[in-house]
Design a protein around this nucleic acid. Structure first.
Lengths: 188, 188
DNA sequence: TAGTAATATATCACTGATGATATATACAAA
DNA sequence: TTTGTATATATCATCAGTGATATATTACTA
């Protein structure tokens, strides 16, 4: 239910339409909290019922009217209540790792192919991350430098996790290629 | 929909009841694909309808009968079809990172508290990971060494991701404490 | 002796998220 | 000229997953 709170956070910057929110979600938080359009619209409707938002309908005939959402005091309160609430463990679902888990029943070559596929995906992700700042430099010109700092911090998180994953994938591939079925050394 | 395929994988080891599957999921794949009991039972029922499984009902009156599920040829085919299918990007949803994203609208102390909370969670996770092999050593005695190798590989993945996260959290906390709002250096 | 953990399954309301479809206009590029 | 993209919203079937509740016995333990 954190999409609600992400939306509260964005509307705390400035009033926006569902369309605006979809765009900003895509370029900012989507790498750790994706949201499709239908989910955003449904959530906005629910939030309005909860009196966290008010709608300002700006008709622009004959185009569909812009429904610009504004944060209410109640909504702002809910945002800051939630920002103080420690969140429990992060949710992760890795279908590809289920495949690796059952790698014992596959040929080496097949497992390696799956790992190399993930390696490609992670490398592409890394390229995507490093290109985000350039793409959005224009939009971020007038942003608060403190807001910008935390934005960049979340990108840095994605980068560091992707790098760790690339390294793990490379090691795993090499271990299998060398035919060394020693248990990987676990050290914290 | 990968719970289905995880179940196919486990039943490929040997026939099991829903109860057995719940137990083995908890100690093996739950750190990257958690499943509650109701979800497992619902999925088993669906899989039986799809003819991927057959049920052998072993009555043990007056206790509820054990419904032992067996993989069919069709189910085994589906398992190996899926094991060959490259999976797309991994799903991640990190509510706490949404909070950090909006850290610009919080006091430093508050953001640091949130980061330290995550640091604790990750450190506990690491301790949990390193203790898994001891806990399950008995159960794994008679396991295939190749199966065991890939099991340990997935644990190693969790460990490496957790270590990377701990390092990132420590760095982020220090950066904020030093009041240095320089953008973190992104380097791939 | 009372409590609780383990064994084993069944079912249901709910919700977050997905994916598809629909409508309608303006404008730029091929 | 047609195709695609951007603007902007609406709705719906479907599903995976959660959480709660229910039943019923055995066996251990405080």
């Amino acid at each position: 239910m954190s999409l609600e709170h992400a939306i509260l956070g964005f509307l705390n910057y400035e009033p926006m339409s569902g369309y605006d929110i979809k765009k900003i979600v895509d370029i900012s938080v989507s790498h750790f909290w994706p949201a499709v359009q239908s989910q955003i619209y449904k959530t906005l409707a629910r939030m309005e019922k909860e009196d966290w938002l008010t709608v300002e309908t700006i008709s622009q005939d004959p185009r569909p009217p812009r429904k610009v959402y504004h944060l209410t005091n109640s909504g702002r309160q809910e945002l800051f209540r939630w920002l103080n609430e420690p969140q429990s463990a992060s949710e992760v679902r890795l279908a590809w790792l289920i495949q690796i888990f059952f790698g014992g029943r596959m040929e080496d070559a097949q497992v390696i192919a799956l790992l190399e596929h993930q390696l490609n995906l992670q490398r592409k992700k890394l390229i995507g991350f490093t290109s985000i700042p350039d793409e959005t430099k224009q939009d971020m010109q007038d942003d608060d430098p403190r807001d910008k700092f935390f934005w960049m911090l979340t990108i840095d998180y994605g980068v560091s996790q992707a790098i760790a994953q690339v390294k793990w994938l490379e090691t795993a591939i090499n271990t299998i290629k060398q035919g060394e079925y020693h248990l990987p050394t676990i050290q914290a």
